[in-house]
Amino acid sequence: MTIEDIQAEIVDEFSMFDDWMQRYEYMIELGKSLPLIEEQYKTEDNIIKGCQSKVWVHAELEDDKLVFTADSDAIITKGIIAILIRAFSGQKPKDIIEADTDFIDEIGLKEHLSPTRANGLVSMIKQLKLYAVAYQTQLS
C-alpha cells in the first residue's frame, strides 16, 4: 500500500469514533500495541528533542525501504508515533520525504500539530523525514 492509501485507511478507522474520548482510547490501544524498539537503540542520540515525554526512533534500511521502530515513556505519545510509523514505515525514503501529513488533522489530532505543543508531533514528523533524507542520499 502507498502512504496515501494507509493514511486514508487510518482516517477511515478514526471516522468511526464519535468523540475525542473514543479517539484517545483507540490511540492508547495503538500505543500499547506498538512493536518495541530494540533496547540497544534507546539511546540519547535517538531521542527526539522537543517532546515533554521521551520518544526514541530508530530507522533501518531493508532493501530500498525504510523501516522505523520507536518507543515512548508516555502512552499517548506512543499512540501518536504508532500512527506515524504505520503511515511511513516500510516505504521508500523518497515517498516519505514527499508525503504530506494532512491526515493528522483529519483524524482529530489537530491540536497536537501546533509547533509549541509539548508532545512534539511536529518534531516527530520532522525526524522521520530527516531519516528518509539521510537514507535517500545513501541510496542514490
Binding site: 484517545y24 515533554q52 515525554s53 515513556d73 508516555a74 502512552i75 499517548i76 505519545t77 509539548a118 508532545n119
Partner: peptide, 8 residues
C-alpha cells in the same frame, strides 16, 4: 506518565 494525564 504525567504528560498522558495532563493531556486527558
Amino acid at each position: 506518565h504525567p504528560y498522558d494525564v495532563g493531556t486527558i
